[in-house]
Write a protein that binds this DNA or RNA. Structure first.
Lengths: 223, 223
DNA sequence: TTTTTTCTACTGGTTTACCAGTATATTGAT
DNA sequence: ATCAATATACTGGTAAACCAGTAGAAAAAA
């Protein structure tokens, strides 16, 4: 299964290898990925970058089949990167990579168009499968990721109502422990207005006091 | 610089290489570390493990000079691992490794006896230096880690006053958005008592309302 | 055992949050 | 230009949080 007759490979390889670009700011991970993929003749790691800017510049001129994209880049966040890459090169398949697994981020990345998502504890096999699947325009999500997505989908039914800019702002100030009066002073509006916003927030988020409001805001990373 | 005359190496290597054990649950990182260290003749990667249990079993019989220890293992947490390893083999030098950098964890690990700490975005050079430094019984901390430690020392002066069990419990209930009366019912105590606890909490933590209390609790992971 | 800490509980008072309903000016979208 | 959404602001009332001081009982530490 692993070692095909070399004659076959060298003489009649119908498909050229899948060209892969690695984007990760951790040299260790880059080396690790390269090593894990070095045995695999169907994949060729084209090059790598450690930040978003260089990656986008490269993609101005060059193209690859699949990008292994770390979510935590120093300059541009992963979610944004997905959008920027696909705006430039819509046919590229992006495979998200991260150490931890936050449902909200994974969801955002899927919305933006990643074809797959792996945690960095993925095995060599998973990695190879993922690359070939996304290259064939299928989705691929690691087993842990699938579990996480399943959980978050369950909650997604009563998703957060979107808050207005003003509401988000006030929510953040509330979470900082500021009272209605203080907030009103800072925003140069009436305390009564602040209270109205607070009430609307609690109604929208279906909670009954400031404590729950803050907890929910922290949990959902609205602030 | 890379290729020394092979005669020199094979005939007169005064010091045997530093034996290194890698412990990390991410295959990618393991491969990456091995690759980064493969050029370095002064270091020999003995073997690797992906969890704490196997590592400790190995150390029952074998010994190495330096352990590269990931903080986030699936079974035993890094802080505990350091203690367990050093109880068994006090002469081993442990170099902590993690992707992110939480001051409290780094501090705990130092207290438990790690000789160095690197983030996973360390370069090949940093890694080599770190290994040789800790092998010589010096401390080595990556530049980012040093910055983090400096910051945390500054804050450490007014560290959190330790809360009693009851206080911690009530703090958690407050953070869940429960009112004084509800908490009192749940704990079969008077609402007045709950309020006293709340007041003590606020005093201890130097905040002036429940909102700040919750935010602080979430931030400091007291709950 | 004695001392200290923790948990318990109260009085009495101020401030703030919370609830319900209403209303107007200003944006933003179609 | 018109309609919907947003941000603004009010009245009036109830409930809960917050503040200060006190104090007894239980548990833990000395």
């Amino acid at each position: 299964m692993k070692a095909q007759p070399s004659t076959y490979i060298s003489t009649s390889m119908q498909h050229k290898p899948i060209s892969v670009l690695i984007v990760d700011d951790h040299p260790m991970v880059i080396e690790g990925l390269k090593t894990l993929l070095s045995d695999n003749e169907t994949v060729k790691v084209e090059t790598h970058f450690t930040n978003g800017k260089d990656t986008l510049e490269f993609l101005e001129k060059e193209i690859v089949d699949v990008i292994l994209l770390d979510v935590n880049l120093p300059d541009i966040n992963g979610v944004e990167m997905v959008k920027l890459i696909l705006e430039k090169r819509a046919t590229i398949k992006i495979l998200g990579l991260s150490t931890y697994s936050e449902p909200s981020i994974i969801n955002q990345m899927i919305k933006n168009g990643v074809k797959g998502y792996l945690l960095k504890n993925a095995t060599s096999d998973e990695l190879a499968t993922a690359i070939s699947q996304v290259h064939d325009d299928n989705f691929y999500f690691g087993s842990e990721v699938q579990k996480i997505l399943a959980d978050s989908v369950a909650q997604e039914s009563k998703d957060l109502p979107k808050l207005t800019r003003r509401e988000t702002h006030i929510l953040r100030l509330i979470a900082e422990g500021k009272t209605t009066n203080i907030i009103a002073e800072e925003l140069f509006i009436s305390p009564l207005t602040v209270e109205t916003h607070r009430r609307n927030l609690m109604q929208k988020l279906e909670v009954s006091n400031a404590a729950s409001l803050i907890k929910l805001a922290v949990e959902k990373k609205l602030i």
